[in-house]
Amino acid sequence: KHCVKCNKAITSGGITYQDQPWHADCFVCVTCSKKLAGQRFTAVEDQYYCVDCYKN
C-alpha cells in the first residue's frame, strides 16, 4: 500500500481512513500538524482539522 498523501510505501504502522491508506505521520491537522490518528477530528472538503483548530 502507498500513502494517499505522500505516495510512499507504508511498511508498518499505517492507518486507514475512508478505505484509504495513510502513514500516521501524514494524517495530521492542516493547521497545526497535530497527528489525528486515534483523535477526534473534523474533515472539510478533504482537509482534516483537530478539534481545537476547527473550533477556531
Rank of each mutant, 00 (worst) to 15 (best):
W22Q: 03
V4I: 13
C50R: 01
V4R: 03
V51A: 10
G38V: 09
D46T: 04
S12D: 15
V4K: 02
T42E: 12
C6E: 07
V28N: 15
I15G: 08
W22A: 05
C53S: 02
G13K: 08
T42R: 12
I10K: 02
N7I: 13
K5W: 14
A24V: 06
D25W: 06
S33W: 06
C32K: 00
V51R: 13
D52K: 13
Q18F: 03
V28D: 07
F41S: 13
H2S: 13
Q47L: 14
L36I: 15
G14M: 13
K55R: 14
N7S: 14
V4G: 05
T42N: 01
I15H: 15
S33P: 10
G14H: 03
K34T: 03
K34S: 13
R40N: 03
H23L: 00
A9E: 12
V28M: 11
H2I: 14
G13E: 11
K1M: 08
C53V: 01
C53R: 00
Q39T: 10
F41N: 15
V30H: 09
F27I: 03
C26M: 01
Q47D: 12
W22P: 04
A37C: 07
Y49R: 09
E45N: 13
K35Y: 14
W22D: 04
N56T: 04
V4S: 07
A37G: 12
K8E: 15
V28Y: 09
V28L: 06
D52G: 09
C26T: 00
A43F: 14
H23V: 01
A9W: 10
K5I: 05
K1R: 01
S12Y: 06
V28H: 11
V44Q: 11
C53E: 02
C26S: 01
V30T: 03
D52M: 06
Q39G: 11
V28T: 06
D46F: 08
R40K: 14
C29Q: 01
K34P: 00
K1T: 01
K34E: 07
T16H: 02
D19I: 01
T42C: 07
N7Y: 08
I15R: 07
K5N: 11
Q18H: 07
Y49V: 12
D46C: 07
R40W: 04
Y54C: 09
K35G: 12
N56C: 14
E45T: 11
T16R: 13
E45L: 08
I15F: 07
K55S: 05
V44Y: 12
D25Q: 08
C3F: 01
K34W: 03
V28A: 08
C6I: 02
Q18P: 06
H2Y: 15
K35N: 07
T31I: 09
E45I: 06
C29R: 00
C29I: 01
L36Q: 04
K8G: 12
K34F: 05
F41V: 13
C26Q: 01
V51C: 15
Y49E: 08
T16G: 09
V30M: 09
A9Y: 06
Y49Q: 13
G13V: 04
F27W: 11
S12W: 12
Y54M: 08
A43W: 08
I15L: 13
I15Y: 11
T42W: 07
N7P: 03
T11H: 04
N56G: 04
K55C: 04
C6W: 01
Q18M: 06
C29S: 00
L36K: 02
G13A: 13
C50L: 00
C3W: 00
N7D: 04
Q18W: 07
Y54W: 11
D25C: 06
Q20C: 06
K34R: 06
C3G: 02
F41D: 02
A24L: 04
Y17T: 11
T42K: 07
C26P: 01
Q18D: 12
A9C: 15
P21C: 05
L36H: 04
F41A: 13
S12Q: 10
R40G: 11
F27D: 00
C29H: 02
H23E: 02
G13M: 09
C29K: 00
C3Q: 00
S12L: 07
P21A: 11
D46L: 11
I15P: 06
K5L: 14
Y17C: 13
G14I: 13
T16D: 07
C26L: 00
G13N: 11
G14F: 02
C3K: 02
S12K: 11
C29A: 01
K35C: 05
K34D: 09
Y48T: 10
S33N: 11
C3D: 09
I15D: 08
A24C: 11
C3N: 02
T42I: 05
P21N: 10
K35E: 11
P21M: 05
Q47F: 13
R40Y: 03
T31R: 07
A43N: 14
V51N: 14
I15E: 12
A43G: 12
K35D: 14
T16F: 03
P21E: 07
F41R: 11
F27H: 01
T16C: 15
L36D: 01
T31M: 09
H23G: 02
V30W: 13
V44G: 10
Y17F: 10
D19S: 11
K8M: 12
Q20G: 07
V51P: 10
V51H: 11
F41Q: 14
P21K: 06
Q47H: 15
K5H: 15
K35M: 12
N7K: 07
Y49F: 15
D19A: 05
L36E: 08
D19F: 05
A24K: 01
F41C: 10
Y17G: 13
C26I: 00
K5D: 03
V4W: 03
H23P: 01
N56I: 14
D25T: 09
K35F: 05
H23Q: 01
K8A: 13
D46R: 09
K35H: 12
V44W: 05
C32E: 00
C6S: 04
S12N: 04
K5A: 07
H23R: 01
A37P: 10
G38S: 09
